[in-house]
Nucleic acid binder design. Structure first.
Length: 117
DNA sequence: TTAGTGACAGGCA
DNA sequence: CTGCCTGCCACTA
């Protein structure tokens, strides 16, 4: 059960981290997994999102893969996510990529981000 | 119980 | 810079 609790903690940490993503910013699955305490939990993060995002009212659309692209298949939610991102001012280039240098969110820089805004 | 799958990531050609 | 291959982990058939 200790093991089970760890998984619960990871899930909770993931949910909490995602809920903290500022509007207009994005972060990768892997980075969230790392912050939540599991360096190899990127796939679990996606699984958690798919299962709990609506229930927890999370900004799931601000989570993308390490290549800066939307991971959903065209026709399987891609358009919707892209639209939500663009509504927040997040730009995608002609290849559907988002620049982390501009829109990437790093929890470690939250203080800096806060001071600027 | 084993095999297959996936809203991923990093290294290599 | 782009595409392919392998590693990881939880869940489903």
């Amino acid at each position: 059960m200790e093991l089970k609790n760890n998984m619960q903690n990871f899930t909770k940490a993931v949910i909490e981290t995602i809920s903290r993503i500022p509007r207009g910013k994005v972060i990768s699955y892997g980075r969230i997994a790392l912050i939540a305490g599991n360096p190899f939990g990127a796939r679990q993060v996606s699984r958690i999102l798919h299962a709990m995002s609506q229930k927890h009212n999370l900004p799931w659309h601000r989570v993308i893969n390490s290549k800066g692209m939307i991971s959903l298949p065209t026709g399987g939610g891609y358009e919707g996510q892209r639209r939500l991102l663009e509504e927040e001012g997040i730009a995608l280039d002609e290849k559907g990529r988002i620049d982390f240098e501009i829109f990437g969110w790093d929890p470690g820089k939250i203080a800096l981000y806060h001071s600027i805004t």
